[in-house]
Amino acid sequence: MKLTLHVWRQSGPNDVGRHERYEADDVSEHMSFLEMLDVVNERLTERGEEPIAFEHDCREGICGTCGMMINGVPHGPKSMTTACQLHMRSFRDGDEIWIEPWRATAFPVLKDLVVDRAGFDRIIASGGYVTVRTGSAPDGNAMPVPKDDADAAFDAATCIGCGACVAACPNASAMLFTSAKVAHLAALPQGQTERWDRVLGMVETHDAEGFGNCTNHGACETACPKGISIDYIAQLNRDLIRATLNAKPVGNGTRG
């Protein structure tokens, strides 16, 4: 199939950037979206031009490294699918495809389609962990977890940190990501020790990183390749309100 691509090209963080038009004439419908870009890049390299920079790692939809706006939708037109798992059969011969990086102050563009998502790491570092006794491994199932809680935690834990929620959100809010991390640990007994400090810390970092405010548009949920539910955002809100209204020291007492 033949496609016309409009790809965002930006040589570095300080370049203004622009859309470049490329004709991709030898695309097979069996290729993944990233394989299609690989082929375009080969042609570019052969012509002595700079290949399009994009991030990828597992190409199995599990690592969260890939991700780009494809025709105005994070990860492209197929729901619950990462860009690496999207196949060209989702497009038709002659289609024009616009490819852009995630756009958010908190995700500055490094090059072409690659953005710096270290903001997510800093959100995790400010609460997305549990304290455990190191040494010998604890017995499996030593700590019973009700099935519903285990399921809720597992569903939240499927977030791969790709950033599609931020990209889709009209406010560039990272609440879906943050709430998935908060709710994952809050559902489990192991997560109780730092529960209140966690939500306070992670929301504080979320805001400080320059992510926007959630206004319950729900675009994140639609865009999320893992189907993370915005119910987790309600849970985060509830935990944050509880943590702030609770006057006595909470959690491990590292916050006033």
Partner: peptide, 8 residues
């Protein structure tokens, strides 16, 4: 975005 579809 140059091209944007609302998912709200």
């Amino acid at each position: 975005y140059a091209k944007e579809k609302s998912l709200s």
